[in-house]
Amino acid sequence: MTATARETVLGRIRDALALADPREVTVERAYRTGRTLPDAQRLELLTDRLVDYKARVRVCTADRTARTVAEALSARGARRIGVPAGLDPEWLAAFDGEVLEDSAGIPAPRLGDLDGVVTASAVTCAETGTIFLDGSPDQGRRALSLVPDLHVCVVDLSSVVAGVPEAVARLVPERPTTLISGPSATSDIELERVEGVHGPRTLEVIVRTDA
């Protein structure tokens, strides 16, 4: 009987471990975890990082969400936008353009016809300026925040944590998760940074300080 590739590879690994007689190790997590920072510091850190990545940052209170979203969209000339089905409709109250509510049946090329997309976010890491989307109803499927050229992302300051460990701790592993740190970029040609290759070339972040 010939062994399957699975049996063979697992057998080789067991043989390798028997031959190498590896030393036991304990994993010490002595690096910084469970950090908290006051609101003002998290906001300052996050803004600094996002601007460094060439993202545009707008700060507002929750009651001004609709106006700020409309400002961000009009500043980029966006007239046709897509939104996930679970996005709070109040956020678009001041936007007078066309809104497409996304669904799984819409083919990706149609998303490419949109001027932009507005989503919420799951959690954000201040120290690295990273926004995590996890496919919740107010964030939508991954294609929606990827194909259009402009992404307006609403971040609640209460969901902004200090560092990477604090952010990872808040994730739900089974959800398709995308980490976004600024607009897409490449440095492949003579290491000269170019913003915007395949993902959205423009990232607008709206931070709501009391939400």
Binding site: Y53, A104, C125, T128, G129, T130, G135, R141, R142, A143, L171, P173, E174, R175, P176, T177, T178, L179, I180, S181, G182, P183, S184, A185, G199
Partner: peptide
């Protein structure tokens, strides 16, 4: 942090 990191687990219907 790099601009994008994707994390996926098996298949997610509709996404």
């Amino acid at each position: 942090m790099n601009p994008y990191t994707s994390l996926w687990t098996g298949v997610t219907p509709g996404d």
